[in-house]
C-alpha cells in the first residue's frame, strides 16, 4: 500500500525541500519506488535542489489541468533508481490546486509508487493545506528556535483537524519530528533550544536531528541531495532518519557537542 508523506513546517526556510529531497532519495536508495511532489506552486524549488531544473517541461499544474500526462511531467532522477520528481509550476499560484484534482493525481501515483513525498509550501494557507490533506504520515521540520517550534505546533493542529484522515474520523496522521540546523555547541551556550526542549513542546516522536552544516548549503547549490554525501554528518543524519522512517531503531547521533580531537585542537581546524 502506497504511503503519502507530507513534509511540512508552517515556517519558511527551515529545510522542508532539502529534507524532502534527502528523504525521498534515501527511500529510493533503499529500493522503494518514490516520487517527490513539489506543492509550492509559484515558488518552484525542488527541481533546483534535485538538480533537474533544466529538464522540467511539464509540471504538476499541467497534469492537474490535464494539459499533460503524469508520464510527461514526471522527471526520472539520474543518480538514483526508483526516484521521480513532479515539479511545481513557477507561473501559476496555489489556486490552481483543487481537492478533486489533487486527489485524482495522487490516486494515480499510488498505483505506481510505494512512497509519495509531498513537499509542502510554507504557511498554513491553501497550498500547505492541500499538501497535507491526503497525508498518511507527516514529517514536521523544525529549527531549534521558538518561532519555528510554535509554527510547527500550529501545523500539527491543522494536520489533526483539516487532513482527510481527521475529517473522515480515520486513524490520525502519524507525526514525525525532524529537527534541522541543530548546533549542539550553541545549545550548550544557551543560544538554541535543545532537542529535549523541542520534544517537550511538540510532544511527537523524534525522527531525526540534522546538524547545522556547510555541506547542506553546498549540496543545495550543486543540486545534489545531501544524503548522497555519506561523508557529511548531515548526510549520515538523514540516512539514519530514513532508516527510522522505515521502522528501524537507530540511535540518535550529532545531538551532543563533539569534542575536538587532539590533532584538531593542535592544528586549530574546524569541524
Amino acid at each position: 500500500m502506497a504511503k503519502i508523506i507530507v513534509v511540512t513546517s508552517g515556517k519558511g526556510g527551515v529545510g522542508k525541500t532539502t529534507s524532502s529531497a534527502a528523504i525521498g532519495t534515501g527511500l529510493a536508495q533503499r529500493g522503494h519506488s518514490t516520487i517527490i511532489i513539489d506543492f509550492d506552486v509559484g515558488l518552484r524549488n525542488l527541481d533546483l535542489i534535485m538538480g533537474c531544473e533544466r529538464r522540467v517541461v511539464y509540471d504538476f499544474v499541467n497534469v492537474i489541468n490535464e494539459e499533460a500526462t503524469l508520464n510527461q511531467a514526471m522527471i526520472k532522477d539520474k543518480r538514483t533508481d526508483n526516484l521521480y520528481i513532479l515539479p511545481a509550476s513557477q507561473t501559476r499560484d496555489k489556486d490552481a490546486l483543487t481537492e478533486e484534482s489533487v486527489a485524482k493525481v495522487l490516486e494515480e501515483l499510488k498505483e505506481r509508487f510505494e512512497y509519495i513525498i509531498c513537499d509542502s509550501p510554507a504557511g498554513i494557507e491553501k497550498g500547505a493545506q492541500m499538501a497535507l490533506l491526503f497525508a498518511d504520515e507527516a514529517i514536521v521540520v523544525t529549527n531549534p528556535e521558538v518561532s519555528s517550534v510554535r509554527d510547527s505546533d500550529r501545523i500539527l493542529g491543522i494536520l489533526q483537524s483539516k487532513s482527510l484522515r481527521a475529517r473522515e474520523g480515520q486513524e490520525p496522521v502519524k507525526e514525525h519530528l525532524l529537527i534541522t540546523r541543530y548546533n549542539p555547541a550553541r545549545v550548550n551556550a544557551g543560544e538554541m533550544l535543545s532537542v529535549a526542549d523541542v520534544e517537550d513542546i511538540l510532544a511527537i516522536p523524534l525522527l531525526g536531528v540534522i546538524p547545522e552544516s556547510q555541506d547542506v548549503l553546498k549540496a543545495s547549490n550543486q543540486g545534489e541531495p545531501v544524503i548522497l554525501n555519506s561523508e557529511a554528518a548531515a548526510g549520515q543524519a538523514y540516512s539514519d532518519a530514513v532508516e527510522r522512517l522505515l521502522g528501524k531503531a537507530v540511535e540518535h547521533r550529532f545531538v551532543d557537542e563533539e569534542r575536538p580531537g587532539f590533532f584538531k585542537r593542535l592544528l586549530g581546524g574546524r569541524a
Partner: peptide
C-alpha cells in the same frame, strides 16, 4: 485526549473540560 495545539480553541459548553494532554502556547 490529544494535545491542543497553537491556534486551536476548545470550548466545553455547559460543563467541564478535561484535557489529557498538553495545551500549547497559542492555544
Amino acid at each position: 485526549t490529544r494535545p491542543v495545539r497553537s491556534g486551536q480553541q476548545i470550548y466545553a459548553e455547559g460543563g467541564d473540560l478535561i484535557v489529557l494532554a498538553q495545551v500549547s502556547e497559542g492555544a
